[in-house]
């Protein structure tokens, strides 16, 4: 037993996939002899997540994020290693385990298409055996937090993608799971809807003390919700720590935005000029030299305003994968 809500050690998942060349001959050959290759989707990763923590789980497509989430929710058997969620072994799929978790996948739906979402909610109430008073309360809260009221009584097929996603999330949380796996919950949604779902996840975590493991391609989601991030690539763990130290670790540069009185100066001697816009120069400088260059800029030039920034998180992540890929 461990006090962590999620605990994994050396977790591995290897898929055996059959492959063949295209064409008739290869098709016939494959009748008698199948060639298979092993694909290591998850290759020995370990981490713990404390109860109530929200952790961002990052990696490019095919990194092994979804495979990991599926192993943690009991949909996939690990090839090797150990996993425990709330003290349960997920692959045993015990009922008391399934009652305490949820997995929301951006493209999967659990709502009946032709009937209003409330009817599907009622079915989930019966499946999870939620007492009617608890059900009314949580449904009330979800309706308020996700602004579901106008959507509840329309057939699901008539809802927009964002509206449907909100209903999907509500359906997945009616049983107030203690551990929430979110796989791209904001995919394909517009910025306003993304923000609403983000706020909601933070609020759900606060209200119910739920542990959240979240994958997203939108760094805004991660920045808004996760102090801690776990980055994987090719099934291996690259980084596990605070978002801020990810930036520290993987960026060799800082950005200096400087505004000058006379807009026609040449700043290339101070660093790489990334852009120039309406009197604002953006310079990229080596992290170690930031203080020195800032001092020189202030001493040498008629500076109106100066700002030192970390590069945007997207850029950092891109760099992490680029470094590993090379």
């Amino acid at each position: 037993m461990t006090s962590a809500a999620i605990h994994i050690r050396d977790l591995q998942k290897t898929y055996v996939v059959s492959e063949r060349e295209s064409g008739m001959k290869a098709a016939l050959q494959s009748l008698f002899h199948r060639r298979t290759t092993e694909v290591r989707a998850v290759d020995g990763i370990s981490f713990d997540v404390a109860p109530g923590e929200i952790v961002g789980f990052l990696g490019p497509n095919g990194a092994g994020k979804t495979t990991t989430l599926k192993m943690l929710s009991g949909l996939l058997y690990p090839t090797a290693g150990e996993a425990s969620v709330l003290g349960f072994v997920p692959s045993k799929r015990e009922k008391s385990f399934l009652r305490q978790i949820t997995l929301v996948m951006g493209q999967r739906n659990e709502l009946y298409w032709d009937i209003p979402a409330t009817d599907s909610f009622e079915l989930n109430r019966a499946i999870y055996r939620i007492p009617i008073s608890d059900y009314r309360q949580i449904l009330g809260e979800l309706t308020e937090l996700l602004e579901l009221e106008p959507l509840l009584h329309k057939p699901v097929r008539n809802l927009s993608l964002g509206e449907r996603m909100k209903c999907e999330i509500a359906a997945a949380l009616l049983h107030t799971p203690q551990v929430v796996f979110l796989d791209e919950p904001t995919i394909g949604l517009d910025v306003t809807m993304q923000r609403r779902i983000r706020t909601f996840i933070a609020e759900y975590n606060r209200r119910y003390g739920a542990t959240v493991l979240l994958t997203s391609h939108y760094m805004a989601d991660v920045e808004a919700l996760c102090r801690r991030v776990i980055v994987i690539h090719h099934g291996k763990l690259l980084f596990d720590g605070e978002l801020a130290s990810l930036v520290q670790k993987f960026t060799a540069h800082k950005t200096i935005v400087v505004q000058l009185e006379n807009p026609n100066a040449d700043l290339s001697a101070y660093g790489e000029v990334v852009s120039y816009e309406e009197g604002h120069y953006t310079l990229r400088v080596p992290k170690a030299d930031t203080a020195r260059i800032t001092g020189r800029l202030l001493a040498d030039l008629p500076v109106v305003d100066l700002l030192v920034e970390d590069p945007p998180i997207e850029e950092v992540i891109e760099q992490v994968f680029a470094q590993e890929g090379s």
């Binding site: 599926k70 949909l75 499946i127």
Partner: peptide, 11 residues
């Protein structure tokens, strides 16, 4: 793949 959703249910 809709079977995955079913498998997550405690029934």
């Amino acid at each position: 793949g809709t079977f995955s959703v079913t498998l997550l249910k405690p029934v």
